[in-house]
């Protein structure tokens, strides 16, 4: 499949990714809300929006370079080289990953951690799908109740995903990635990311509210 005006689509993806980044930053704050007596945070929003931001920015980056890249497929480009894409897109992402590793080896690791929190169905072997499944197989994620190993119980992400443990870490991973893309080629794609970072407060100080 070839996309017409693929660069326009890439820019639109980038811009939506930046909007997701703003949503993540706006959610990175302490709140005093309770759900049936239990405190909740917006940390799960920070993590999910950070992950979605990285996904859109990466897809935009790849789409800018090739109009045969299909951004509608896959959600975790750094973890899986996006199934169903043409093989020629894998080297482009491999080169990006290798380049990121050249200066900051933790960056790709953190992006993969971020992707690991995207919701996904539990892995169950085909021959065992008819059996009753234990709740423990539902992995930690930002959208659906999951099994918390620490609490040994099922938790909702609004209660289990923590602001300092997860939110700050996720937002830092996103911010570092944005900084790299903002300094990278092609300038038509990256320069406005750099401008975005100059104009929006991106601190991870959770008591500061960005204006």
């Amino acid at each position: 499949m070839l996309w017409e005006k693929h660069k326009e689509l890439a820019i639109a993806l980038r811009n939506q990714g930046l909007a997701d980044c703003l949503a993540a930053r706006f959610s990175l704050r302490t709140i005093d809300l309770k759900l049936f007596g239990e405190p909740v945070t917006f940390a799960h929003i920070v993590v999910s929006k950070s992950q979605q931001s990285v996904e859109k920015l990466t897809k935009g980056y790849l789409l800018w370079q090739s109009q045969s890249f299909d951004p509608t497929k896959g959600h975790a480009p750094f973890t899986q080289l996006i199934d169903d894409q043409l093989p020629n897109h894998q080297p482009a992402l491999s080169r990006l990953i290798q380049s990121l590793n050249l200066v900051n080896k933790s960056m790709v690791r953190e992006l993969k951690w971020l992707e690991s929190l995207a919701p996904k169905p539990p892995m169950v072997a085909e021959d065992k799908r008819g059996n009753l499944q234990p709740l423990e197989i539902i992995q930690e994620n930002t959208e659906y109740p999951y099994w918390s190993v620490a609490q040994k119980s099922l938790v909702a992400p609004a209660q289990g995903i923590k602001l300092l443990n997860h939110g700050v870490r996720a937002f830092k991973a996103l911010r570092n990635y944005l900084t790299v893309l903002g300094e990278s080629d092609p300038p038509e794609y990256g320069n406005q990311i750099s401008d975005f970072l100059k104009h929006h407060a991106m601190s991870t100080e959770i008591t500061e509210w960005p204006q």
Partner: peptide, 16 residues
């Protein structure tokens, strides 16, 4: 050992 893209692109990735 860098992946071969074959598209002639020469893109830099920037860091602080």
């Amino acid at each position: 050992e860098a992946p071969e893209l074959g598209d002639g692109s020469l893109s830099g990735v920037g860091f602080s």
